[in-house]
C-alpha cells in the first residue's frame, strides 16, 4: 500500500513537473512586470530545483496540503473537501440505480439463456457499455429538460437535479453488472452442489435464492466496489454536462483554465479514493468468500 502510494505521488509529481507552459504567465499575463513575475515565481516555489520540489511536494501532501488554485488562490484541499460530498452523493445515487436493476436483469438473462429475453438483455448491456456518457446524458437532457420540461437541465441541489446525472452515470455500471451477474450465475448453475440441491428436490426458487445468488454475490460485490471507486474520482464528463458541483467538474474547470494545482489535486485525490476502494473490495472479498480465506491460511 505504502509503495503504491509513493509510486502514485511520484507519477503525479512527474506529470506536474512536465506540464507545459509557465504557470506564472497564466496568472499575470506574459507582458507583466518582471519584478512581479519573479515575486510570484518565488511564492509558488517555481524557482527551486526538482528534487527539493519533490521533497516539498511530499511534505506538503503529508500535511494534507495540495496547493492553491492559480486563479482563486483558494486552497485546493478545501475546495475538494467541499465538493467531495456532492460527488459521493452522485456516486451513491448511481449505484443505487445500477445495482438492483443490473443484478435482476443479469439473473433473468442467465435463467433464460439463449432465449429472446437473454438476447435482448445482453444487447442492452453491450449498448450500455458502448455509449459515451456525455452523449447519453445530453439525450436525457434534451428529452426530459428541454422537451418535456420536467427536470432542470443542470445545477446542484435536491432530487430533481440528481436524477439525470445519476441515471447517466449508472448506465455503464448497470451494463457491467448485467454482464458479470449473467456470467457468474451461468457458471454457478453448472456446479455440483446446485445439481445436488435439485436432486434433493429443492424448489427452483429456493435453489436460485439460496445456492446460486449467494455464490454469485462475490463477483457482484467486486464490480460494485470497483465502479464505485471509479465514480469517486469524479465523473468528469457527467458532472460537467449537468453542472453538478463535484470533483469531476472541478477538475474540468481546472483543465479548461490550465489551473495545474487544481487538476493535479483532483487527480491525486481521485486516484487515492480509487486505490482505497480497491483495498476495501479486497477486504470484503476476503471475508465474503470462505474459499479465499482457506487458501490464505493454508499457505
Amino acid at each position: 500500500m505504502i509503495p503504491l502510494l509513493m509510486g502514485i505521488t511520484f507519477i503525479t509529481f512527474s506529470l506536474t513537473k512536465a506540464l507545459p507552459g509557465d504557470p506564472v504567465f497564466s496568472i499575470v499575463g506574459e507582458r507583466s512586470n518582471p519584478e512581479i513575475i519573479e515575486k510570484i515565481r518565488k511564492e509558488i516555489g517555481a524557482d527551486k530545483g526538482s528534487l527539493r520540489q519533490y521533497a516539498g511536494y511530499v511534505t506538503l501532501l503529508l500535511q494534507g496540503e495540495l496547493g492553491r488554485s492559480y486563479y482563486t488562490n483558494r486552497k485546493v484541499v478545501e475546495d475538494i473537501g467541499q465538493k467531495f460530498p456532492n460527488t459521493f452523493l452522485l456516486a451513491c445515487a448511481a449505484m443505487t440505480i445500477a445495482t438492483p436493476i443490473g443484478v435482476l436483469l443479469g439473473f433473468i438473462a442467465a435463467l433464460n439463456k439463449g432465449r429472446a429475453a437473454d438476447k435482448i438483455i445482453t444487447t442492452l448491456s453491450v449498448s450500455g457499455i458502448s455509449m459515451p456518457v456525455f452523449w447519453s446524458g445530453l439525450l436525457l437532457m434534451l428529452f426530459f429538460s428541454l422537451r418535456l420540461k420536467i427536470l432542470p437541465p443542470s445545477g446542484t441541489g435536491g432530487l430533481q437535479y440528481l436524477v439525470m446525472p445519476a441515471i447517466t452515470l449508472s448506465l455503464p455500471a448497470l451494463a457491467t453488472l448485467i454482464r458479470i451477474t449473467r456470467i457468474t450465475v451461468l457458471d454457478t448453475m453448472d456446479m455440483q452442489y446446485v445439481r445436488t440441491a435439485r436432486a434433493k428436490g429443492m424448489t427452483e426458487t429456493a435453489i436460485n435464492s439460496i445456492h446460486i445468488m449467494k455464490n454469485a454475490l462475490i463477483p457482484i460485490i467486486t464490480v460494485i466496489g470497483l465502479e464505485f471507486g471509479s465514480y469517486l474520482n469524479g465523473a468528469v464528463l457527467t458532472e460537467t454536462i449537468f453542472g453538478w458541483d463535484g470533483i469531476g467538474r472541478y477538475a474540468m474547470e481546472g483543465i479548461v483554465k490550465r489551473d495545474y494545482p487544481v487538476i493535479m489535486g483532483s487527480l491525486l485525490i481521485g486516484t487515492i479514493a480509487f486505490v482505497l476502494m480497491n483495498l476495501i473490495v479486497d477486504i470484503i472479498y476476503h471475508y465474503a468468500d470462505p474459499r479465499v480465506r482457506v487458501h490464505g491460511t493454508d499457505r
Binding site: P3, L4, G7, I8, I11, T12, L15, A18, L19, P20, G229, S230, N233, V236, A251, I255, R258, Y260, I263, M264, S266, L267, G270, T271, F274, V275, N278
Partner: peptide
C-alpha cells in the same frame, strides 16, 4: 509487474487526461 500494478491502480481516464495535458 510492480510498474504494471502502479499503472493499473490509476483511474485510466484521469491518467490519460494528465498525460494529454503534459504533451499538449
Amino acid at each position: 509487474m510492480a510498474v504494471v500494478d502502479l499503472i493499473l491502480s490509476f483511474p485510466a481516464f484521469l491518467l490519460a487526461i494528465g498525460i494529454s495535458l503534459v504533451l499538449g
